[in-house]
Nucleic acid binder design. Structure first.
Length: 440
RNA sequence: CGGGGCGUAGCGCAGCCUGGUAGCGCAUCUGCUUUGGGAGCAGAGGGUCGCAGGUUCGAAUCCUGCCGCCCCGACCA
């Protein structure tokens, strides 16, 4: 993409409303625009990141056996009356009426709807297990939205729902998501730690919040430092192996980790001092087993091998991609701007023509731009008629992992400069070596 | 919902107390000069001062009501 033809409205100054660093940088880097309290437009750069995040989420859901669907944002109140949640949900749910004065709502979540889909089609245990997920906009009319897309009213959520014949099956479904979440966040350059979460009326140990550590995180968390060095399950993870995933689950829950709501001071005190970690964190995922709560209320049952009807055991599994974008920035930035992990960077390479209009730098940049693009590297070519300083500042702000800097001085020796955003390291290399260097 | 704060040009702000024809920086446009870390000079454009009432000869400024946004607390992907 040529920057001169792109839409990247970066700001030199920080809009007043932005308090935390991710919100400030998302506004300054021209990623989002707030349209109303907690409601955002996603501008081109922000949308690219959001799509990268979604792609990783989708790949890992699919790998773990999830099947993607897409349910609507607007739901009928009738479904929610069946489960009893229409009255129970409270004012966080945005209630609306259509022209026929039928009660509708902007979905805050989709348990009812997915259960309705399930019960409409699935009759036999032979069709289980099933895990349906979608990535869709949700609306929760938060009392106080804040922190940009970290806590917005309209937000993107990946929500998956598992259906199993019994609790043992549901536990395996849970473990699949557990492993998938560890992989998902790790691929985004984040170290996530599963922490005990409130299980509500069901009880048991089957609810975890996935927390990433960040100074500006919303929750206070306590855990064993050794989690940071735990090995994340690899691509070769066998999601069919009940024993394997159960072992993984047990390993990743063997040490203490809890948010302040579930904090057990005595258990924490038992951790050796050197391993104690008290920090702030951001919840980026939440997985939950809730048994037959909805299948019972909404009559979602299958015939089992015994010839009898069984209400299915369900779980739900959320990830907030629009929050993750902010969370990634919270975890990865410096004074100059964002530092995108390679996997979610809006472009992999920024190509800086320090003297647009100069025939030598223009020609070199055109060649490099064509080569990089042909090699499948997403490249943002800063071909604007701006001063070098403006281009450097802008490139650092939007945080592309690599900067290829083409200026008249080094070009006279046939060289260009390669800068790694994360470390600030620069190296001069022959222009012909750039592609090979970036392809590794 | 309780407490606090803010709405003046695209962004950041001053002006308000003590009413008198709306200003600064950045950005934008034009020209010249500059050209490796958000350039310099000269010029130009851009504002129903959040909205509605009221007081006054006169309101960005004083009064009343409303709307919007932000921060702190209780709730949440």
């Amino acid at each position: 993409m040529r920057l001169s033809r792109y839409f990247l409205p970066t700001l030199r100054e920080t809009p007043r409303e932005a308090e935390i660093v991710s919100h400030r940088l998302m506004l300054r880097a021209g990623m989002v625009r707030q349209q109303s309290a907690g409601i955002f437009s996603w501008l081109p750069l922000g949308l690219r990141v959001l799509n990268k995040v979604n792609a990783i989420v989708r790949e890992e859901q699919n790998r773990a056996g999830g099947v993607e669907i897409l349910m609507p944002t607007i739901q009928s109140a009738d479904l929610w009356r069946e489960s009893g949640r229409y009255d129970a949900y409270g004012r966080e749910m945005l209630r609306i009426q259509d022209r026929h004065e039928r009660d509708m709502l902007f979905g805050p979540t989709n348990e009812e709807m997915v259960t309705d889909i399930f019960r409409s089609y699935v009759r036999s245990y032979k069709d289980l297990p099933l895990n349906l997920y979608h990535i869709q906009w949700k609306f929760r009319d938060e009392i106080r939205p804040r922190f940009g897309t970290m806590r917005s009213r309209e937000f993107l959520m990946k929500d998956a729902y598992s259906f199993d014949l019994d609790k043992e099956g549901a536990r395996h479904a849970y473990n699949r998501m557990f492993a998938a979440y560890l992989r998902t966040f790790a691929r985004m350059g984040l170290k996530s730690i599963p922490m005990q979460a409130d299980t509500g009326p069901i009880g048991g140990d089957l609810s975890h919040e996935f927390i990433i550590l960040a100074e500006t995180g919303e929750s206070e968390v306590f855990c064993d430092r050794n989690y940071l060095d735990f090995e994340v399950p690899g691509e070769d993870t066998d999601f069919e192996s009940r024993e394997g995933l159960q072992g993984l689950f047990e390993r990743w829950t063997s040490l203490y980790a809890a948010t302040s709501e579930k904090h057990d001071a005595a258990a924490y005190a038992a951790i050796p001092d050197a391993d104690k970690l008290s920090a702030r964190g951001i919840e980026v995922g939440h997985i939950f087993y809730f048994g037959t709560k909805y299948s019972k209320a909404m009559n979602a049952a299958v015939t089992g091998p015994d010839g009898r009807e069984h209400e299915v055991h369900m779980g739900s599994y959320g990830i907030g991609p629009s929050r993750l974008v902010a969370a990634i920035i919270e975890a990865s930035h410096d004074e100059a701007g964002v530092i995108w992990p390679d996997a979610v960077a809006p472009f992999q390479v920024g190509l800086l023509n320090l003297k647009a209009g100069d025939s030598a730098t223009d020609a070199a940049c055109e060649t490099l731009y064509a080569e990089l693009s042909a090699a499948g590297l997403d490249t943002l070519y800063d071909d604007r008629d701006e001063r070098a300083g403006a281009k450097f500042t802008n490139a650092d702000l939007i945080g592309l992992p690599w900067q290829v800097i083409v200026g008249p001085k080094s070009l006279a020796e046939g060289k260009v400069e390669l800068k790694r955003r994360r470390t600030g390291e620069r190296e001069l290399l022959p222009i012909g070596d750039v592609l090979a260097r970036l392809s590794t």
